[in-house]
Design a protein around this nucleic acid. Structure first.
Lengths: 234, 234
DNA sequence: CCTGGATTTACATCCCGTTGACGTTGGCTC
DNA sequence: GAGCCAACGTCAACGGGATGTAAATCCAGG
């Protein structure tokens, strides 16, 4: 199922980890269980997850630290913290280390699910949102057909071009490295040195097709690309 | 301040409405208070708010309904629901009507603020956490982009120029030898005799780009350079 | 096979740090 | 003050790495 959201579940307690994954799978998600903070960070850094469920109390590296490092490496990565620690100080620490939401145990499964969904929707990662039109510059892009229209005029985009455009819009205003694009858009796992030029080629094609709006995709030499425009789901 | 986030506060209880707005204003936000659900919806539909704080229990039109209609009209509008109703069913209803987060009273102000911030960040309405900008003379320098601005006018600095400028600012008022610059900025290991002219060339470029402020970088013949200005991290 | 799209390849181009030549400056000696 | 010379400013040119891009190649589905 490539259209199910990928969820990384970082939780050391076996019963909870397995239970959570079961529930997620039952609800149409694609969960990946991991036991330790270190493994969680390693997995998350591949960038292939739509959401990271992160327990705070983990052996060796705690959730706060995992979140901090993850947020630094992938600013746009959605993270939902789950923990028994419910003191205000812990909640603040959780958010300060970059969490998008913070849920204290015991929590109801139903609440977890709706909070997950809210976060996935907000970050544009719900499967149905992948079919939803979005806009890039003055273009309106229809993912299902690959049709892009600007003041009445229509052009065709390939699937990769649509995915690439969506990645730019989703991280509007932020730097996106080639490595990140290869992981996010291309789904290549861990990328060591970026040898391939396929990203550049696709960016070039997209720019050309977008015409003057292509200039909104800026090259940051030695860093990657950045879309200078507003993110929009309409 | 056009760079302060605009917050719409929909809350019928006066004390809470005023108190919340005060806190928000104190924390650098731009709050707009509204009493009823209808007014809240009308205001929110203008689309000029970065975030809507929405109480659930309102006269006439309740928060759930406001949220539903608002979400339909502006799918990307961030909404944070605030309510005394803390039952699981209410929470689920809140999220199902499209809220991004749901906080039950009594809540701590600190938690409200961090949750607001998390949501604003996630929806791309907060400036990215960049490496601390610093100022050199009348210029303000963004290390990440190499952009330097002085009274509205912007220029581009290369990476080396930024590094060099940072070194000067850090040791403001103190002599910096070429040898030290080569070690600190250029990362050349142990330098015997300074044969290279690269430092001079870069200082020259930097001076030229800085215009009249370039004169703040003084040459100490036979010694090195000294920046005559204040060190500042803005 | 054929075809459209993804990927690689090859080459042109651009950016930018570095170099070396050369002119200028400042401080020294006489 | 003249002359000298090392230090410094400046500029053009070089070169390597990164990027743009057209063309060739690969590859999966019809």
């Amino acid at each position: 199922m490539s259209d199910a959201a990928n969820i990384l579940v970082v939780e050391d307690e076996e019963a909870l980890r397995v239970g959570t994954c079961d529930v997620l799978a039952f609800n149409g998600y694609q969960p990946t269980p991991v036991e330790t903070g270190e493994d969680g960070l390693k997995e998350a850094l591949t960038g292939r997850f739509d959401l990271v469920l992160l327990d705070v109390m983990l052996p060796e590296m705690n959730g706060f630290e995992v979140c901090r490092q993850l947020r630094e490496a992938i600013p746009a990565q959605p993270v939902l913290m789950l923990t028994a620690k419910g003191s205000e100080e812990d909640i603040l620490t959780g958010f300060r280390s970059g969490a998008d939401d913070y849920l204290t145990k015991p929590f109801s499964i139903a609440e977890l699910l709706v909070r997950m969904e809210a976060l996935l929707r907000r970050s544009g990662r719900l499967p149905e949102q992948r079919e939803q039109a979005f806009s890039l510059g003055a273009w309106s892009i229809e993912p299902a057909t690959g049709q892009a229209t600007r003041d009445g005029h229509a052009i065709e985009l390939t699937e990769k071009e649509v995915d690439l455009a969506r990645a730019f819009v989703r991280d509007a205003g932020r730097l996106i490295s080639r490595r990140r694009l290869l992981q996010d858009v291309w789904g290549w796992g861990k990328v060591e040195d970026v040898q391939t030029r396929t990203v550049d080629v696709h960016v070039a094609k997209l720019r050309k097709k977008l015409g003057k709006d292509g200039a909104l995709i800026e090259t940051l030499r030695g860093e990657g690309y950045r879309y200078n425009g507003v993110g929009s789901t309409t």
